[in-house]
Design a binder for these strands. Structure first.
Lengths: 224, 224
DNA sequence: TCAAAAGTGTTAGATTTACACCCATGA
DNA sequence: TCATGGGTGTAAATCTAACACTTTTGA
């Protein structure tokens, strides 16, 4: 063979930071490791990259394994490559974050995988460098939500403005003025008001809105 | 052995997008590949990750090999992991960008490695997925320079305000109003005016400034 | 003396922030 | 009838953007 031989190969894995918005809080899925090394420690869900699949494909597959959902909104966080990050062998891991609507995620499946939704502000110590991954993922998704309308991925397809506001408050970690928030939303014509009313959270009922991805076209000045 | 065995290993490489600012233009280093596959094609400079070094360390080492400089400002761009991205073998590459002051970079060394400075707006087709790497790196460094004062890494330690402005114009790809620019700079107390005058670019001479990293403390509202 | 780059403030417009009350309804 | 969350506008303050002339000096 060639040139490549002189160098050493490594195992490659992917680790997923799966964000969900539930009970007014931004959460991620974590579970206790079921294998050595690190058995019993809190950990992100991950998997190995196979020889015949791209790293992105490995991440999609891993997300599908865990959630049963395809075509999730997913972005790469980066490569984590310290020599001793995995206590067993040399494994370099590529972290990805995904945004999911918790209602679409089957509770049964969650339990089968022994995963729990944990408030991002209360993440315990995790296996290996997973806390670092979460930290970076959080910063990236925060940035992303502020500049592109992808927050909808964390909500049901119909949502109230209060839900949307609470989501942004949770993501940014600050309270937002209701009137100013609604003013800005009103200017975004890709957030459409429907005729439907949600009565589940108040007696009066709140209008349901929907994101129209057809109408949205990339806007470098988007800011929320 | 364990568990790891069932999975396949891959080669890992790093590729470097090295930014420099010269003749009023933002440039990167590229050279013609000297090995197969892809011999003769324009390419980023890269190298393999050794078994006993972290991915970051491999990037630092590779940058040092090429530039003779250590402790360069360097950030990870991301992992590029399509199955067939390398026409020879399965190689996953982690891209990094670095900012260097072209004056500190020895011309001899550049020639030895057969690298040339190429205007970022005129990059030809590159080997494999290197154009994609450059595109992402450029976006990231643009974002970085706009929100953290790291542009100084691309300039001599003493610089004029005109140089600084030209740098930002090249990075953002737009002209900037001189008075507004200087107004903003004046408010940044970590950009210190020195007593020195640079006469090389005008008869009158321009004051030289210096970045004081002691005085700068991280400011989430930084914007340039 | 003139060409070439350095240096300097003001104003209008746009954007952002702060802020408080009425509405509709089910219990 | 009242408690609860839904819904609405205005004014002050801040930030941003546009804009033109004087200074210095070497050739």
């Amino acid at each position: 063979m060639t040139y490549y031989n002189e160098h050493s190969k490594v195992w490659l894995s992917v680790d997923c930071i799966i964000f969900g918005f539930d009970e007014g809080k931004l959460k991620i899925l974590i579970g206790k490791r079921k294998m050595d090394p690190g058995r019993g420690e809190w950990s992100l869900y991950g998997g190995f990259v196979a020889g015949d699949e791209s790293v992105d494909a490995a991440a999609s597959r891993t997300l599908f394994e865990l959630t049963g959902l395809r075509n999730l909104y997913m972005r790469q966080v980066g490569a984590f490559g310290n020599v001793d990050r995995d206590p067993g062998e040399r494994v370099v891991s590529i972290a990805y974050y995904a945004l999911i609507n918790v209602n679409e995620y089957d509770e049964e499946l969650r339990k089968e995988h022994d995963q729990i939704w944990m408030d991002v502000n209360e993440i315990p110590q995790l296996y290996s460098d997973h806390n670092e991954m979460v930290k970076k993922a959080r910063k990236m998704m925060q940035q992303k939500l502020a500049h592109e309308p992808v927050g909808f991925r964390l909500l049901p397809s119909l949502f109230t403005l209060t839900q949307l506001q609470k989501l942004y408050e949770a993501v940014k970690g600050e309270v937002i003025d209701k009137r100013n928030f609604r003013k800005r939303i009103k200017e975004m014509d890709f957030i459409e008001k429907t005729e439907l009313i949600d009565k589940s959270s108040s007696k009066r009922g709140a209008s349901l809105y929907r994101f129209n991805k057809r109408i949205y076209n990339v806007d470098p000045n988007f800011k929320l």
